[in-house]
Design a binder for these strands. Structure first.
Length: 191
DNA sequence: TGCCGGATCCTG
DNA sequence: AGGATCCGGCAA
């Protein structure tokens, strides 16, 4: 069942946590590519989050964040990767949730553990920036029989420049998944 | 107009 | 540890 506008129009941290276990669906040439979301991060433009693209106000790149909830904010980074966000909260708050990792469920080729990799696997680029997530090309679904799973939180990845905001535990992931782009801070996992 | 660095990923 | 490789955002 497709997630409704009201699902997105809520507190961003809650949305980020609730998105774990949901299915991300990308339709390419009538074929559904589906992945299970296992890692997200909340970005709160509304409260001055220095790590958020919207922190310094509305610019052409992040304009979609200032729009209505339930739309895709896709940006291009490091000259070679795309990242997918979903816009949250009432219009104008400029908040979004970054989708960082999915597990393959249906018709997925290639790696999907990491924001750039999942966009490559799902053929997501800036042509989808601003796309309505209640439309047919890109949307999220609550899978039937979605099971309860352990959730962990920690600091967001790659935002050390954001000072105190970098410490906020706004990264959420399913620790039981082996498809998490980066382990929590601390010692690397040994085998 | 120029330049600096990034919500990343891969290789060595 | 460092390179790839574009472009957004800010300073000048």
């Amino acid at each position: 069942m497709k997630l409704s506008r009201s699902f997105y129009e809520r507190d961003t941290v809650e949305v980020a946590r609730d998105l774990l276990g949901m299915h991300l669906v990308r339709v390419v040439q009538g074929r559904r590519r589906v992945g299970r979301i296992v890692e997200t991060e909340a970005y709160l433009g509304a409260v001055g989050d220095r790590a958020a693209h919207s922190f310094r106000g509305k610019t052409p790149r992040c304009a979609v964040m200032f729009g209505p909830p339930g739309h895709a904010y896709v940006y291009f980074i490091y000259g070679m990767h795309h990242c997918l966000n979903v816009v949250t909260e009432p219009e104008g708050r400029a908040c979004a949730v970054l989708i960082r990792a999915i597990e393959p469920v249906e018709n997925i080729d290639g790696k999907t553990c990491g924001p750039g990799l999942l966009c490559r696997a799902l053929d997501i680029d800036r042509s989808l920036n601003g796309a309505d997530l209640l439309g047919g090309a890109l949307f999220l679904e609550r899978p039937r029989g979605r099971r309860e799973a352990a959730v962990e939180a920690g600091p967001r990845v790659g935002v050390d420049y954001a000072g105190a905001w970098a410490l906020k535990p706004w990264r959420f992931f399913l620790p039981d998944s082996d498809c998490v782009s980066r382990r929590p801070a601390g010692r690397p996992v040994r085998k």
